[in-house]
Amino acid sequence: MNLFRLAGDMTHLVSVVVLLLKIHTIKSCAGVSLKTQELYALVFAARYLDLFVHFVSLYNTVMKLVFLASSFTIVWYMRRHKIVRRTYDKEHDTFRHHFIVLPCLVLGLLLNEKFTFREVMWAFSIYLEAVAILPQLVLLQRTRNIDNLTAQYVFFLGAYRVLYIFNWIYRYFTEPHFVHWISWIAGIVQTLLYGDFFYYYILSWKNNVKLELPA
């Protein structure tokens, strides 16, 4: 475990906590894409299949449980909670996320570290996570007044990916034969998707104006 990876995991944790707090306290999910949340729940479900099979560390197990619980809780809130579900921006959250699940599954079948069920699911989850933010970014372009908590949620998600890239660079230079093309390429693609969000987010923060993403 290195500082970059720990900081990355903590930033990822903060992003889901920010989102959960927003939804739980103000009972609103305005501006939040249910499709992205469903994709994330699927990412964790597919990736953490070895939760009870391989014990890596207490930290690893606890964090997996936290990410699984939080992602499914957020989906539950947005789908089932009688107040929150009414604030869901259904008509603007129209990204056809089914169209990205299938290609990621096919890619997982073709490009994986070992052709076993768990490894295919793991690769699928890596590819899916890379594009899971798309529905959320599309929704932000269509949302007029983006509220701070939603913007912070996306910002922390992007920050966690940037930190993971530093983690991989560090591990590449400190651990012999630490090579993971699947995570690296998918992770770089994922981070690039946040590029223009970061640009407009930092610009709005510097000029102290409301965040607006150009459509």
């Binding site: 990876r5 997996k64 630490f178 993971h180």
Partner: peptide
């Protein structure tokens, strides 16, 4: 991490 070992990253 050799092949087949559990992925140690989240």
């Amino acid at each position: 991490r050799q092949r087949g070992e559990p992925h140690d990253e989240l």
